[in-house]
Design a protein around this nucleic acid. Sequence first.
DNA 1: TTGAATTATATCGTGCGCGATTTAAGTGTC
DNA 2: GACACTTAAATCGCGCACGATATAATTCAA
Lengths: 144, 144
Amino acid sequence: MTQKADHQILENQLCFPLYAASRLVTRLYQPLLEQYKLTYTQYIVLMILWQNDGLSVKQIGKKALLNSNTLTPLLKRMQQAQLLERIKNESDERQIDIKLTAKGWQLKQGLACIPQQLISQTDYDTEKAKQLKTLLEQLITQLK
Amino acid sequence: MTQKADHQILENQLCFPLYAASRLVTRLYQPLLEQYKLTYTQYIVLMILWQNDGLSVKQIGKKALLNSNTLTPLLKRMQQAQLLERIKNESDERQIDIKLTAKGWQLKQGLACIPQQLISQTDYDTEKAKQLKTLLEQLITQLK
DNA sequence: TTGAATTATATCGTGCGCGATTTAAGTGTC
DNA sequence: GACACTTAAATCGCGCACGATATAATTCAA
């Protein structure tokens, strides 16, 4: 088999497993997040803020790999749900800083059980999960 | 730091790398697909049909892990673009069979170069890609 | 210091994804 | 044969994703 043909097959097959696995994992999270009326992307943003509250939209976007066209409406919905506040930065009025409310912080406790629940629910091998995570991160670094 | 505290951090979860990598790969495909006015999901469906023309909506959904609520509008758009025909099955009139048009088949040639272009563009290690693919497929099998 | 370039966020339009429901066709049971 | 049950698509509503563009604040350069 030529190198060329090999590449073609391999690469064609990598794109779909990524796409499918990502959606399947999202579906796994959904019933757990639903109890808190959260979407998957909102959960991602919450995790970013728990670790680093007060970030600007831009800074959140850099971590989540999302732009304002996705984040602005999402953050407004989260503000409506009283999970966070959107505060105009004093020294640079273009910037909106996002600060979690008490309710936003409380969710951290409620959602703490999610990772373990998912692990026990799927019993996916921990070693494989680690490998997969490493490979994905390398891919991300290369593409980012 | 406790093991428990670790779990909830974005960087330590598998969910985010999967989500991010999937979107980054989609973005990589997009400029190439755009020339043919295709979306990423339409490309997935095309690949399925190239391999197995004449499938029903249900059968395509089984392969793509998508339901009619996603597929019906998507297939209608592809029909509009004259890439395929939607034909009511004679022996079971609930079923819609999807058949590629000449134009749909022609795209197979045009898009053949995509995998190579992506590889040369990213030079992602072939061995790692293979490993990643295997791990993803195992995960998918478990979650499907 | 003033006008051009840059930057941060917002807005708009389109196409997914997907839960929930509807419609219509086929199947099974009595 | 009638009626419940199942199945395949379609429809609806909502929330992302994201390219393109707009708006407003800041910075830079002549």
